[in-house]
Each structure stands twice: as structure tokens, then as C-alpha cells.
Simulated scan of single mutants.
Amino acid sequence: MATADVLWNIPVYVRLQNGAEKSFQSVHDTLDFLENEWPSPRGAYHDAAVISCRKALNRQTSPAVSKELFLAACLEAGLAVRNNMRPGSHHSSPTVHRGL
């Protein structure tokens, strides 16, 4: 039985290595990207984000934690991120970085 997806209140926009921008509005979409489309190499934040997304889908942790770890993984990989409501805005929200 598939687990229900968890939506974020505010989507995350990621500028991919090819210059395209992709939006992430749910934990499931984010986990799929982390597992199947993530650029190499994979770092510690990537691994933590994968684990956290799985736990969020199983209601074992807050989706906010998985979102923060995803943002940290993007920054770790050199991918630009925006976490706001306006697609045309270029202001990034601050992200708390926790030691792993």
C-alpha cells in the first residue's frame, strides 16, 4: 500500500545544472528527485534528506525537517534554491544548517 504524499505550504524552486528551474511541492516529488535525478556526487546532506523524506512520508518526522535537509543538500551540491511563493522573485529564504 502506497503512503500518502505530504505537501509543503511553500514550494521549493531549484535551479538545475542545465539551467532549468524545477519546483518541488511535496515530499514524494522531492524524494523521487533525490533518488533518481540527483547530480553526482552525493553528500551527507543528500543522504540525510533521503532518510528524512522517507520518514516524513511515513509520518515519523516533520515534513519541515525533510524540507530543510533538502535545501541543505541542494546548497551542498551547488544548486541554487528559492523557497518562496513568487516564481519571479530571486530572493532566497535563509536555511538553518545543522551538523550531521
Rank of each mutant, 00 (worst) to 15 (best):
W38R: 00
H91T: 11
R82Q: 12
W8C: 05
E68I: 14
Q60L: 10
A4G: 06
L7F: 07
W38E: 05
E21G: 00
D29Q: 11
P87I: 15
T30G: 01
L79K: 07
V6M: 02
L34K: 00
L31H: 00
S23N: 03
E68K: 03
E68N: 07
N18H: 01
V96S: 06
Q60V: 14
S62W: 04
M1P: 07
Q25V: 08
H46Q: 10
A64E: 09
I10H: 01
K67Y: 04
L79C: 04
P39R: 06
D5H: 01
D29F: 00
V50D: 01
I51A: 13
A77E: 03
A72P: 06
L69C: 09
V6Q: 05
R82E: 08
K22C: 00
A2H: 04
C74N: 09
P94N: 13
S23E: 04
Y45P: 04
W38G: 02
L71I: 07
D47H: 04
K55I: 12
Y13C: 03
T3H: 02
N83G: 03
L75V: 15
H46G: 05
D29M: 03
P39C: 02
E37R: 05
H90Y: 08
R15C: 06
P63T: 08
R86G: 13
C53R: 11
Q17L: 12
A72I: 07
H90F: 13
S89N: 14
Y13W: 08
A72T: 15
R59Q: 14
R15E: 14
M85S: 10
D47S: 10
T61E: 14
V96D: 13
R98N: 06
V12W: 00
V81W: 10
R82N: 09
A72M: 09
R42E: 12
P39N: 08
G78C: 10
